[in-house]
């Protein structure tokens, strides 16, 4: 596989959220506004790049039997870095993401990429893979949150979209809206896939 496709596969073809159904919890919980989604996406991408790079570097030194605990320690270290940096420089974002920052540790995307990719590939490809997956995750979050924010709050990144007469559907930024948006988006991706297969 070429370096470019390593980078781009995460965005659509192997999108972690819509395709592999990984990292669902943060995808639904923090997608109440685009700002939160971008913050979460950036944090997860940073952790992904760091953990993929380190895991790929030490992959030959880790005994196979204890590899999962080793990966978790590496990931937890980077998550702690994000937690402290975000708390110091972006206290508001840190407050609105809440417990989902420490919970990046158990985000299946990160452990999944460490296990499935970084433990078998060199550092360069692992970093490309991490960036691609990070972009894919961020893209999914932004897509969900844009829909929810526009419908549930009438705003996008803080700007009014439909003018003052629009009555927002509050349900969309509450929990039910997240589940329904997610279900419909996944269904939509299935429809697109099916159309493509029929053509191909």
């Amino acid at each position: 596989m070429s370096a470019v496709s390593e980078l781009t596969k995460g965005v659509y073809r192997e999108n972690p959220v819509f395709r592999l159904a990984l990292g669902l919890c943060p995808a639904l919980a923090v997608s109440t506004s685009v700002e939160n989604a971008l913050g979460m996406g950036a944090a997860a991408t940073f952790v992904l790049i760091g953990s993929n790079a380190v895991v790929s570097l030490i992959r030959k030194a880790i005994p196979a039997k204890v590899r999962i605990p080793c990966y978790i320690v590496v990931i937890a270290t980077f998550v702690t870095v994000v937690e402290l940096v975000m708390g110091a420089y972006l206290p508001e974002l840190s407050k609105s993401l809440g417990i989902f920052i420490p919970l990046i540790v158990v985000n299946c995307i990160i452990l999944g990429r460490a296990e499935a990719f970084a433990s078998k590939n060199g550092i360069f490809r692992s970093i490309l893979d991490a960036i691609g997956m990070g972009i894919g995750f961020t893209f999914a979050l932004v897509l969900i949150s844009a829909l929810r924010e526009v419908l549930g709050d009438g705003k996008l990144m803080g700007y009014m979209v439909f003018g003052p007469n629009f009555k927002p559907v509050l349900m969309m930024i509450l929990a039910p809206g997240a589940f329904i948006t997610m279900g419909l988006l996944m269904g939509m991706f299935n429809v697109i896939d099916e159309r493509r297969q029929r053509k191909g």
Binding site: F179, M186, G187
Partner: peptide, 20 residues
């Protein structure tokens, strides 16, 4: 196209409405 995970999410959304 909704079989499997998508419909599960829709059902979860309806359940969440009840829990709301």
């Amino acid at each position: 196209t909704m079989i499997g995970i998508p419909i599960t999410f829709i059902v979860a959304g309806l359940m969440a409405m009840a829990f709301q």
